[in-house]
Amino acid sequence: MTAPIIRLRDVNKTYDTSGTARPALAGLDLEVRAGEALAVLGRSGSGKSTLLNLIAGLDRPSTGSVTVDGVAVHKLGEAALAGYRRARIGMVFQFFNLLDDLTVEDNVLLPAQLSGVSRARARARAAELMDRLGVARHARTFPALLSGGERQRVAVARALMNRPPLLLADEPTGALDTASAADVRSLLGELNAEGQTILLVTHDTALAGACATRTIELLDGVLHRDTLRAGAAR
């Protein structure tokens, strides 16, 4: 049995300090093991985005602990959080978050440049990823000239640039047409089959069904349902 790469213990997150509103997360305990593809489902306001932000170190729990890849994320200062995200987290967003004034290749290279990787090593890794994800022919192209599905593939390549142990995806098919969404679903499934640990927040039940080995549902900040796909190991 593999060790948990994500462990949350009694996590509470409250944005309203007056105590009159319900918490975004309430006493959440969660473990995700290396190699899992976990889909987090739930209605708007259920706590999905809060959970993702806590794991990414973009927010802090009001109480409780968040540990990712052996790092106590809730204890890190701002500089250490930036280093944590560069080294351990790859993030894919609904609206891609690519830099339009950079080429595809330069967008993919950016995480390695921020981490101080040599130009030669970074370019070799970028070439490998762009070829693997089917966007190598667009290396000198600017993102605005690509389709939505192609831009999301570039975003995934950028997220994987520093070989992060954990890939976080926030509604990765939410801005895509049907064909592009199916393409991204297949891509995420392939990455997980190769061993990449993935946590994705989504309303797309087809995405969860296609590439998640496990699905949880949040309801009003509480873990409501935890389902392991038939045949998946825990």
Rank of each mutant, 00 (worst) to 15 (best):
R9H: 15
R9V: 13
K13F: 05
Y15T: 14
G19R: 14
A24C: 11
G27S: 01
E31Y: 15
R33Y: 03
G42A: 13
G47L: 02
K48Q: 14
T50P: 11
L58H: 13
G64E: 05
T67D: 15
V68W: 01
H74P: 01
K75L: 11
G77I: 11
A80F: 14
R85T: 00
R86E: 10
I89D: 02
G90V: 09
F96D: 00
F96Y: 11
L99N: 15
A112N: 00
S118D: 08
A127T: 10
A139C: 09
T141F: 09
F142Y: 08
A144G: 06
L146R: 03
V154L: 06
V154E: 01
A155T: 06
V156C: 03
N162C: 10
P165M: 05
L168Q: 00
A169C: 14
P172C: 07
T173H: 09
A175K: 03
A175C: 05
L176Q: 01
L191N: 04
A193H: 14
E194D: 07
L199E: 00
T202Y: 02
T205G: 14
A210H: 04
A212P: 02
T215Y: 01
G221F: 01
G221Q: 13
L223T: 07
D226A: 03
D226K: 04
T227F: 02
T227V: 14
T227S: 07
L228I: 13
G231D: 15
G231A: 04
G231W: 07
